[in-house]
Nucleic acid binder design. Structure first.
Lengths: 188, 188, 188, 188
DNA sequence: GATGAATGAGAATTCATTCAT
DNA sequence: TATGAATGAATTCTCATTCAT
């Protein structure tokens, strides 16, 4: 593994465990087995590490969502797939996801804007699926698509606070339950 | 207002705005118009303030939930009321709620255990309502009551990141939508 | 001596000796016999110390110049007195003067503006004396008063690089020589 | 332009602008369009760059002064020429001159001794002209030649802090004024 | 009850320089 | 000749907390 990869890995694990603010740069570089200077050679600042962690997961999930949304098939199926996928990929890289859910506030203002914009696009693609279902009568229209989307993502973003991938409920099953609850809550 | 009240108020506002770690004790006491010494006279430490903020909201919501759960009437009605209430009271004291949602990790280990236990009790009372509905056939039983409860509270706990009480959707309406989504997602 | 005084004293000596950039805050506080925390209790930053050092000397010299310029007597006498005074007071607090001459660039932009403005006022009061002499025919008018003023202050501001108060030339004598050169260079 | 030349150029501009200590080697090499390795290939250290900048200007001015001092003609004329020349050449390469005036303290002890010695020789050649004039009765003898020389060089060395070559006073005129003030201040 | 000066342990970041390639 | 990754020591500043008054 290259030095930047080792750094991202160590940072992801530590930030997920203790939260961004509670992790010293010193700890990250020790875990990565390099020196502080090396870290600052590759990353401009501590919050650059955070940004990179976000970027990776967000890019992956956005790609997936694009494909799923653009596929053929009934909207219910596509929305369910989208929901399952975002949960499964979040749990696949659960440390990154935890960091993502918990530490965005610690990004610099500028990077926060950038990430927010990307997150916004993700939100809107997802919401568009809900709206599509509302327009063709598959989903109830008496709850705003935006609110339903926030409702679902809210649940997703709290996963890090309680879910344990190696506990009673395996990731796939959890994803099915969550997708199920979403679809059910919207069924006309 | 007494000095401790002024401190709690200032802390609530500041912690909600910037997050616990980004607020210096110095700032809190300045906003409260007192000195550091005074703060340490009333509170043992910075995270005592946090603890107090949690305690107030949690105690209030627990009381409400107890009454609602113990009331007569169909379980659907009681669950809906419980859902509406926890949202409305969260938005009523939205700053405290934001702190609550976001900063629990910053409590000392001991206080965290304490708060977790209280939150746990709250979670269980709520889940009990879901289970009651599952047992009498009102709600679907193919999704664990625990998961459904986490799903709902996840949504609630993320409100602070996007909802604006003075925006397009008034608190009452939001609460109805959220309760609606919950009930719908569970309907047999 | 109070803590802030001890800090100013230590900083003045060290900055004069080694230059602002070469002195660590740590050194200053060690020489002052206090801790870093104490320093940051009284001064907002390292360059606040610098600002304070400037302020003191500049205020003193401005006061003196005001009195001298406003006094009665021929302009030659007043200009000579002004010249002697600024040199004598600079050498009286030679460490502060050295810092003053050498380290202004290290102030923050804002404080630099402030100090520049004050220095500007000093420069203008001095130049006004030269102009007065030019208008009443005492001094030559073929060299701009501004240039003559810069010429003199340039000499003054370089004193720190070569002059030793305990060397062959006592401060009073040096001041007389410098004032003499100034007056002579301007005589009609 | 060769690589070392590009480096000297970039360093001169940057050091003049921000001061030696505020310029990172990284910046210099970026401005020169080369890499750090290249810089350390040609120069032993950061202060080698500084030394080189000094050397060039000082050598040039020393050469000129030698010729001027050794020429025929009355001492007044030669001193005036010397004064004009040192000012004109300083302004011709004003960035180098600013660096020269401001950053000598940052040389290593050894290089500082070397530069000081060269500067000393320059100072003494100049002072010798003053003394010559004092001995033949052209100049006043009641001010030490050394002091007069320091007085003049002080003014010169402060030019960087206020003079703008493209402002109201063109370099040639400024040089005349300064030389004029010097000669006048010494006239018997 | 309340003050505010002082502590001291850490935090992020910078940077000249080296060296294997 | 030239690269650029890596070092490691130093630097400024922050802050919760204590304590004599």
């Amino acid at each position: 593994m290259t030095v930047p990869e080792r750094l991202i890995d160590a940072a992801t694990r530590l930030f997920a465990d203790k939260g961004y603010e509670r992790v010293a740069v010193q700890e990250v570089v020790e875990h990565a087995g390099v020196t502080k200077g090396a870290m600052y050679h590759y990353f401009g600042s501590k919050d650059d590490l955070l940004h990179e962690i976000y970027g990776r997961l967000l890019r992956l999930q956005t790609e997936h969502l694009k494909k799923i949304a653009a596929a053929d098939g009934p909207v219910t199926k596509r929305l369910r797939e989208a929901a399952v996928d975002v949960i499964v990929t979040s749990i696949d890289d659960f440390d990154a996801a935890k960091v993502f859910f918990r530490s965005m506030n610690h990004l610099s203002a500028e990077k926060q804007r950038e990430v927010r914009a990307e997150r916004r696009r993700f939100h809107e693609m997802f919401r568009a699926l809900v709206e599509e279902g509302q327009q063709d009568g598959t989903f109830r229209a008496d709850v705003p698509a935006d609110v339903a989307t926030y409702y679902f993502f809210g649940s997703l973003h709290q996963l890090g606070t309680w879910y344990r991938p190696d506990g009673d409920i395996p990731p796939g099953r959890l994803a099915e339950h969550y997708a199920d609850l979403l679809i059910h809550s919207l069924k006309a």
